[in-house]
Every structure is written in C-alpha cells, then in structure tokens.
Simulated scan of single mutants.
Amino acid sequence: MVDRIVPATTDADRDDAARLLGVRDEALAVAEPFLQWVIEDDFAGARPAWEQAGAVLTDDVAPWEQAKLRMLNATHSMLAYLGGLRGYETIAEAVRDAELAELAGELMTHDVVPTLSPPEGLDLTAYGTSVLERFANPALKHRTAQVAMDGSVKLPVRLLGTVRDRLEAGAEPRFASLAVAGWMVYVATGKDANGRELALDDPQAPRLRDAVAQADPGPAGLVDAMLAVETVFDGELAADKVFRSLLVEGVTSLQSR
C-alpha cells in the first residue's frame, strides 16, 4: 500500500523542473513530501531490507489500506465534489474553506474511524489531522476535477463501505452520505457556483447521464434515479430508508446553494 498524493503533471511542472535540473524530463512526476509504503512481509525467500528506507513491514496490509481508502481517499472525494461545486479549482483551495474543512474532519471522526480496526503503529486521530494538513499544501495544485473523475468506480471503495458499516451498527452516516450526495449533485448539475462546466469524466458517464435525464423533478427524484444505478449501489444499500433520507437531505441542501 502506497500513500502519497501525486497530482497530474502539467507543462508548467515540466518547465519548472527543466529550469531547476538543466534537462527536460517528459516523464516527470510531481508529489508531496509525505511518503508511506506499507508492505506485507510474506515472501517466498529473502527480500531487500526495505524497512531501512522507511517502509513499514507488516503481517497484514489490509487494515492499512482500508484506513487510507476510508480516511484520505474518501475525504479527498468529499472535498473534490463539494469544493468543485463551490468553484474551487484545487483541493488546497477547498480545504481552506472553513466549512468544508470542518465537514472533512467530521467525516473522518464520526463516520470513518468507528469502522476501522487500526493496525499497530497507526494513530487514526493523528493520521486524520495529517491528511487535512497535506491537502492544504498549496504547492500541490491537485485539481478537484482530477480527484472527482471516475466517481462511479471510486465511491464504492472509498465511501460506500463506511456507509454500509455505520448503517449496520445502527448509526447515521451523515457526513459520508453528504459526500455521496455531493457526487450526485456534481454529476447532475454539471456546473459550479460560478457557472463553469464540471466535466463528467467517468467510465459510466452515459449511464449516469441517462439516470439524471430520467429522474423525476426535485432532490428525491435525483436520489432515487442515482440509487437505481446498480453498478454503483447494490440493492440492499439502495433500499435503505435511512441512507435515502440522508441523501435527499444532502442533495436538497447542496442544490439550495
């Protein structure tokens, strides 16, 4: 499991690197200072001493991966959709919005952390704080549009598992549901608060557009149409009344803005 934010490389990045290095690298990758490798220590024979370079060797990588997906990646998606709708072009701009930063923190604290069994050596509270600090790095210029792409594929692994676990525990996944509602409005609206286009870059874009076109008027109509996309929402989750109610509440709030 690798945890590192790597925005899409731009021509400006290549130009900056060329000035610094004296050579042009067309395969340049731009990344944040933070870097974490977690490797399952299960090899047939000898291996390099990767821990000497800072890698974490563990008997089970799954808890590390789940924490990263549900905390960092889910929060990334929330900020991409809610921030994109507000007209923010980068994640750093979105997380500097005090309201969005608070929502992102609540997502991790109230919805995600109760679903996790943290591996030894990972402090979830400290990790959540570091996630928001990393997102706020203005030098990354990680575009909300890049993080928002492929939502139909990302949501099931980033957010819907948390929603399902909280519902099964008898809790209301209010903040995770708001993030999903943000995706629905992002897909349906197609424009931000400034009237600029929000491109739908998604492998299921035709299916999603059909769902929006066939939706009954109003927030509930949009929610029901999107929940019917079975390649995103399984039947049990789509039929959950608490989840639907939270989605309608979230879509209503976002559309009213």
Rank of each mutant, 00 (worst) to 15 (best):
118 P>A: 15
94 A>D: 08
157 V>Y: 15
169 A>H: 02
122 L>V: 00
213 A>H: 10
207 R>W: 01
107 L>N: 02
205 A>V: 01
182 G>L: 06
86 R>L: 06
221 G>R: 03
184 M>N: 00
191 K>W: 00
109 T>W: 07
186 Y>S: 00
41 D>N: 15
195 G>L: 07
201 D>G: 00
115 T>S: 11
40 E>Q: 15
47 R>K: 12
118 P>E: 12
59 D>S: 14
52 Q>A: 14
36 Q>E: 15
88 Y>A: 00
5 I>T: 12
139 A>G: 08
257 R>G: 02
126 A>G: 09
67 A>R: 01
244 R>F: 01
12 A>N: 08
177 S>Q: 07
167 L>N: 08
94 A>R: 09
182 G>V: 03
165 D>R: 13
250 G>S: 04
157 V>E: 14
138 P>T: 07
53 A>D: 06
110 H>R: 15
15 D>S: 11
29 A>Y: 11
24 R>D: 08
243 F>H: 07
106 E>C: 07
174 R>P: 01
168 E>W: 03
238 A>W: 00
113 V>Y: 10
152 S>V: 04
171 A>C: 01
226 M>V: 10
164 R>W: 07
217 P>W: 11
124 L>I: 06
149 M>T: 08
4 R>S: 04
32 E>A: 13
223 V>Y: 00
170 G>Y: 13
159 L>R: 02
187 V>K: 02
126 A>S: 12
126 A>P: 05
104 A>H: 12
150 D>P: 03
224 D>V: 04
62 A>W: 05
43 F>H: 14
220 A>I: 01
118 P>M: 01
234 D>H: 07
22 G>R: 13
33 P>C: 11
44 A>K: 10
